[in-house]
């Protein structure tokens, strides 16, 4: 089951790299978030504790419901439907993405974490982090960059589930709250950008230099 989720994670990452339609991207990222929220339930040595269930519920609510709502709203306000001409073309970024999965596999192999349940965890997490960063730098629309940030956070989350199983609940919830507020503020900023500039293309925001 864990493996299925991780494979799903990698596949959704590649889909994100290949698509320019923003509403589709929002849906893919939401699906990714919901799938990931199951991970703590599956991986935890202590099984279905109150802590794991609470975390999973909070993650589903946040990434499966609140984020897509916020981002869809921002998309409607900015009336942007797709990413017409990203800095890196879709095929180039897709190839980079596939390459990153390969490199991540190799790193995961050489790290040799003995107590990990699935050999796919480290490669999946690393490639997700890389693809998140790639989305941030390769895309022009501010909204796509926010999606890249969420993907990056998803990758780090997978690492956290494995590496930091004993992180106190308070801290985990704090992290979720911070990520929520960050995406919330970015949504508001996009609304203001679209109103002030009549577009949300970050490559045209170049007043400030040196």
């Amino acid at each position: 089951m864990t493996n299925i989720i991780l494979v799903f994670l990698v596949l959704t990452n590649l889909m994100l790299l290949g698509t320019g339609r923003i509403s589709a991207s929002i849906r893919i990222v939401a699906a990714q978030g919901v799938a990931l929220s199951l991970l703590p339930l599956l991986i935890h040595a202590h099984g279905f504790g109150v802590r794991a269930v609470l975390l999973a519920a909070a993650t589903v609510g946040l990434k499966g419901y609140l984020f897509p709502r916020l981002l869809n709203k921002a998309q409607r306000q900015a009336s942007v439907r797709y990413e017409p001409a990203p800095f890196l073309s879709f095929s180039t970024s897709l190839m980079l993405g596939v390459a990153s999965v390969g490199v991540a596999m190799w790193i995961g192999e050489s790290l040799k974490l003995p107590e990990i349940e699935s050999p796919l965890i480290v490669p999946a997490a690393l490639s997700t982090i890389f693809i998140g960063l790639l989305l941030i730098v390769a895309r022009k629309k501010a909204l796509s960059q926010v999606l890249g940030y969420v993907v990056l956070e998803n990758g780090i989350y997978v690492f956290g589930v494995v590496l930091a199983q004993n992180e106190p609940l308070l801290v985990e919830l704090g992290i979720l709250l911070d990520v929520f507020v960050a995406v919330f503020l970015m949504g508001i900023a996009i609304f203001h950008i679209s109103r002030e500039f009549d577009h949300i293309d970050v490559d045209q925001m170049t007043t400030l230099k040196h």
Binding site: L133, I136, A142, Q145, V146, Y149, L152, A182, L185, M186, A189, H192, I193, E196, F197, V202, M205, T207, L208
Partner: peptide, 15 residues
């Protein structure tokens, strides 16, 4: 200008 600065700040620092 301040909006551009705020956006850069928010995104770069969050990442």
């Amino acid at each position: 200008r301040s909006l551009e600065a705020a956006w850069k700040y928010l995104l770069i620092c969050s990442v």
